[in-house]
């Protein structure tokens, strides 16, 4: 049985290119989204309201959400009315374009003003995959030749620190940690300080999962951010919110409230290899104009990929 504990290094080299991996990882999404759409589109001679209704259903089932779906369909309808769409193929092309635009509108280049040590703060609700994402990021950057240090800032959940240390050991990177129950700000402080002192290229700070509605815990998170900025002015250079693709419309609330509280620089969507469709990203980027930085399409470390909006949409619709 191939599981998380089997060494990823052995299997990684056999894998195909990025697109192949993305496609296979997204196959579930594609089956629902594109498969559904293709089915509809091929079975119909004309562009009519019934077709639009079925498209709506496909989008809704992919968690695209009521608002974003309505917007997308309104745009399509307008084009139909203007005779810019004459058949189903054009309709699909147009839908793709609109969806890609929703995602590309907000992509800004990664902040480059970071000094020698770049600090990344990882936040999100419980179970979204923060610690695993950090492990994958560590491997990714280490492979690029960067010196990476991890900060085990989840001092709340039982054994979270151990989980982080296992990852650190596996990837061969240092991990700054204190004991369970310690002040997360203190851990962040130590981690950033150690990162700067040891000349690290990247410091990734973990935080405990918290629901976005918990005011006290959001305050704690703000403090972590403040303390990091105190050690290293300008840090954290990226605050990344980790979202679970299997979560529905609540992800919008997560993005909104974390953004309000902390200011997020980017999103990471995990578990896209599961049954989750991730369609909620369209709603989030539509409302908050936040770029998606990475997507997780599998359990192996290299299954965390930089987000490429064009490829994402292309993969969704690829046959």
């Amino acid at each position: 049985m191939e599981r998380a504990l089997t060494d990823p290094v052995e299997t990684e080299e056999k894998k195909g290119g990025f697109f192949a991996r993305l496609k296979s990882g997204l196959s579930k999404t594609r089956d629902t989204l594109a498969g559904g759409i293709d089915q509809i589109v091929h079975g119909r001679a004309d562009v009519d309201d019934a077709l639009l209704e079925e498209l709506e259903e496909v989008l809704l089932l992919a968690d695209v959400g009521a608002g974003a779906t309505a917007d997308l369909l309104a745009a399509l309808k307008k084009e139909v009315a203007q005779n810019r769409i004459r058949d189903q193929k054009e309709m699909l092309e147009s839908l793709k374009e609109h969806m890609a635009r929703l995602l590309t509108e907000n992509v800004s280049p990664e902040s480059s003003e970071a000094g020698p040590t770049k600090v990344i703060l990882i936040i999100g609700v419980n179970g979204s995959g923060k610690t695993t994402t950090i492990g994958k990021l560590a491997r990714r950057w280490k492979k690029e030749g960067k010196k990476v240090l991890l900060g085990a800032g989840d001092t709340f959940r039982a054994a979270a620190i151990e989980q982080m240390r296992v990852w650190a050991e596996r990837e061969g990177v240092p991990c700054i940690h204190q004991k369970s129950g310690a002040d997360p700000s203190a851990v962040a402080y130590d981690a950033v300080q150690a990162g700067v002192a040891r000349g690290m290229d990247v410091v990734i700070v973990d935080t405990a999962g918290r629901l976005q509605t918990n005011q006290n815990l959001m305050e704690e998170l703000k403090k972590v951010k403040r303390v990091i900025a105190k050690v290293l002015p300008g840090a954290p250079h990226e605050t990344l919110l980790v979202l679970d693709a299997s979560i529905g419309q609540n992800s919008i609330s997560q993005a909104r409230l974390f953004h309000e509280a902390m200011g997020i620089d980017g999103l990471v969507m995990t578990k896209l290899d599961g049954t989750g469709k991730g369609g909620v990203l369209f709603s989030i980027t539509r409302e908050l104009k936040l770029p998606v930085r990475f997507i997780g399409i599998g359990e192996k470390a290299e299954d965390l990929q930089p987000f490429d909006p064009a490829a994402f949409v292309e993969a969704l619709f690829a046959r």
Binding site: R3, A4, L5, R157, A158, A159, A160, E162, Q163, V166, W167, R170, S180
Partner: peptide, 17 residues
């Protein structure tokens, strides 16, 4: 759960608490 890193440890900690 023998797969997730530290899952067993997490349950041990809970049991201890």
């Amino acid at each position: 759960d023998v797969y997730r890193p530290a899952a067993i440890e997490q349950l041990n900690v809970l049991g201890r608490d």
